[in-house]
């Protein structure tokens, strides 16, 4: 069982991924944006962070950069579906440059999510 923080602004997507991870036996906390995510991390550091990249306010890139500045060693998985004029790959490449353990392009399968988590925790 892993303590995972999910940072995702789309409520339905958040519910989906939370249930999927819970069913696999993980303990899940959620945050609706990067700022809330940083608060949750400060309160109770998770073992793994799964974060969306494009979110209003403090986005996933801000979150990862803040963690890097804090010298955090918590592994991060970045996920993105892209946006107008911004491709998902671009976001995920940026996240990869910042040292995330795995990236997931939305939509992804349960198997892809499991593989990313296994890779990030290895």
């Amino acid at each position: 069982m892993t303590h995972i923080l999910v940072v995702e602004d789309d409520p339905q997507f958040c519910t989906m991924i939370t249930q999927m991870l819970s069913q696999d036996g993980h303990r899940i906390q959620v945050a609706g944006n990067g700022e809330e995510g940083l608060r949750r991390i400060a309160e109770a550091p998770p073992e793994l962070i799964v974060t969306d990249i494009l979110m209003p306010g403090t986005d996933g890139i801000d979150l990862i950069m803040a963690l890097n500045r804090q010298g955090s060693a918590i592994p991060v998985i970045a996920m993105s579906g892209g946006r107008r004029t911004i491709r998902a790959e671009f976001n995920l490449e940026s996240a990869a440059l910042l040292g995330v353990r795995a990236t997931l392009t939305k939509p992804f399968t349960r198997a892809e999510l499991r593989q990313a988590i296994a890779g990030a925790l290895a």
Binding site: M16, R84, T105, P107, R110
Partner: peptide, 20 residues
């Protein structure tokens, strides 16, 4: 390009719940 993000989130939800 504008709807890709929302669309991918929506398809992501359908795919995830369907798999579960």
């Amino acid at each position: 390009a504008g709807i890709a993000h929302d669309f991918n989130n929506i398809v992501g939800c359908i795919l995830g719940f369907a798999e579960m």
